[in-house]
Design a protein around this nucleic acid. Structure first.
Lengths: 203, 203
DNA sequence: ATTTGATTTAACTAAACGGTCAAAATTAGA
DNA sequence: TCTAATTTTGACCGTTTAGTTAAATCAAAT
């Protein structure tokens, strides 16, 4: 006999929702149970502790991020298109779960021990390969020489920051809720332009 | 008769330390008291509640950020230098409190109501003025036409993200603790280069 | 229909937490 | 030195929290 798939899924969905909204410390098992429409005891019946429940949803989330951005690097397409594909797939993924980036960064920063082993994007982001691509492009005189670390931090920073700091940006740049989607769409153009402008800035 | 300045300062320092490390929900009044070397009752004697103590350090922190980055915009210096000055002053300020950016973004995102009124960088960042600068530079044919919103998000994203995601970046790009300082120094060059490359990318 | 195992519930526990209180200690002015 | 206000403390309180337990319900197989 299998534990009702429905109940387990309802729990995981609710846990993700509440944990993302309040963080590990701020989340309450009672609130997760309420949100799932079940008893608190049943919550502990499925996932023995808050820590284990958190680990379940956290692993699930992390395992979804990688593959969603994996594809672009191996395809035989121009560098600019690779960047666009990365930004596009990342921003599309985050439309469903806007709080995900900030949630992940924060929980890892506050409690790195809990995470060890889970998060290495080396699984889906081959540093050496990327380094080779940049090196080759530079060899062909197409781009300036850049450090792959700054290349990655630049792209991810430009992409992730506006999502993580959404509320602050909305408040200060006065972007209404209905304009936010448009702003994110614009970034799909702006980010590749920014990176390529940098790479091609050959004075 | 004045409340011992020493004790109040010790409390505020400890509170900032603990709150930044664990967040509002994760922080414990007992831990803050221990860190300050005082009794928990004394903590409540100085700051009546956890909320009020948190508000005190949060306001203090926010009021320090603005002015530290204020100066650059009004000076009669080239745009690139303005950007460099902003990045430099921001990164220097964050050397003392590396967890500050993530802390601020997270607490505001989780509980925006608590913050209302505190955070508007419109006090020190005049959007219209910046817009005029970009417009004039474009008029002189020096840069492409860009949206000031993306200009700001780009600069802040490139600057703040590596600080906020420090642990994740260190793990994945294999930057040791003693190399981190060097990496941040490098970003003072990379960020202005990235932005200016973008702005001057006139095909 | 009865049995067996999985699922769900209400009621409970122990510990941790923010906060209070009254008394003790300290400080500063008269 | 004495007094009065401020500062500091240990002991305490009520609530909230994650987690447990034992009984009840349900579903499927015999």
């Amino acid at each position: 006999m299998v534990k009702s798939k429905n109940t387990e899924e309802k729990i995981l969905d609710s846990a993700r929702e509440i944990f993302m909204m309040k963080g590990f410390e701020g989340a309450r098992m009672q609130e997760i149970a309420d949100h799932a429409g079940i008893n608190k005891a049943l919550l502990h019946y499925y996932f023995r502790s808050k820590e284990k429940l958190f680990a379940s949803i956290f692993n699930k989330i992390l395992s979804q991020i990688g593959p969603a951005m994996l594809t672009f690097i191996n395809e035989e397409i121009p560098l600019e298109v690779k960047i666009w594909k990365f930004v596009d797939s990342y921003l599309e993924l985050m439309k469903k779960f806007p709080r995900m980036p900030l949630f992940i960064i924060n929980e890892i920063s506050i409690n790195p021990e809990r995470i060890i082993g889970h998060l290495n994007f080396s699984d889906f982001l081959d540093l050496r390969k990327l380094e080779k691509i940049l090196h080759d492009e530079h060899g062909k005189g197409r781009i300036i020489a850049v450090d792959v670390k700054h290349f990655i931090v630049n792209i991810i920073g430009l992409t992730v920051f506006p999502l993580a700091a959404k509320i602050i940006i909305q408040r200060n740049l006065q972007i209404q809720n209905d304009e936010w989607h448009q702003f994110i769409e614009e970034r799909k153009k702006v980010i590749p332009e920014t990176i390529m402008g940098w790479l091609k800035n050959m004075d």
